[in-house]
Amino acid sequence: MKSEITIKMGRCKGCGICVAFCPKQVLALDELGKVQVANGDACIACGQCELRCPDYAIFVDKGAEA
């Protein structure tokens, strides 16, 4: 795991901005319409999701290996 993705579920409104801007298709909306990590290994910790989230619900930190 190159990066660590933290999601504050209570804040997510499922707008899909993070999903659309993720360049590696790491994120997806689950059956409740909230964000989930679908493919964590592909994450490059670019931070686009965190930068664009209007609800401060997702945070990405670079992992120890990166």
Partner: peptide, 9 residues
Amino acid sequence: WCPGCGNGI
């Protein structure tokens, strides 16, 4: 604010 509203940003 609504889901996806830019005010949060």
